[in-house]
């Protein structure tokens, strides 16, 4: 049996779901960030899969998906750097990165 576009989309959906579960259920802010990175990666897989299986009308191979993934990786790296700096900054003032204890706005 051959591998079709649907296979990649299903794998991507499962990975996105796991990332969403991690982001929703975990207690540590850094692990939540890891879940978000996993979701971004699942979307990247979708973009590359579409780019591979869909060709342009004039027969040339598409390239927009790859370029889009490059930008997603760039933005995700910037986001990871800022978010982890925020986590370290929060830890230095509150001595925890447990999201249940970072509740200053609720009090």
């Amino acid at each position: 049996m051959s591998v079709s576009l649907e296979h990649y989309l299903v794998v991507s959906a499962v990975l996105f779901g796991i990332g969403l579960w991690i982001a929703l259920a975990k207690r540590n802010a850094i692990i939540i960030l890891m879940g978000i990175e996993l979701m971004l990666n699942a979307v990247n897989l979708t973009l590359v899969a579409f780019n591979r299986f869909v060709t342009l009308a004039d027969g040339r191979p598409a390239l927009a998906g790859h370029v889009f993934v490059i930008f997603v990786i760039t933005v995700a790296a910037a986001e990871a750097a800022v978010a982890l700096a925020l986590a370290v900054s929060v830890y230095r003032t509150r001595s925890t990165v447990d999201i249940e204890q970072i509740d200053l706005l609720k009090r």
Binding site: A25, K26, R27, N28, I30, I31, L84, A87, V88, Y91, S95, T96, V97, D98, I99, E100
Partner: peptide, 16 residues
């Protein structure tokens, strides 16, 4: 690095 800089191992990788 972020995990090493936030040594709060009491909760570990626990869930809410």
């Amino acid at each position: 690095f972020a995990i090493m800089l936030t040594p709060n191992s009491q909760t570990g990788n626990s869930e809410t």
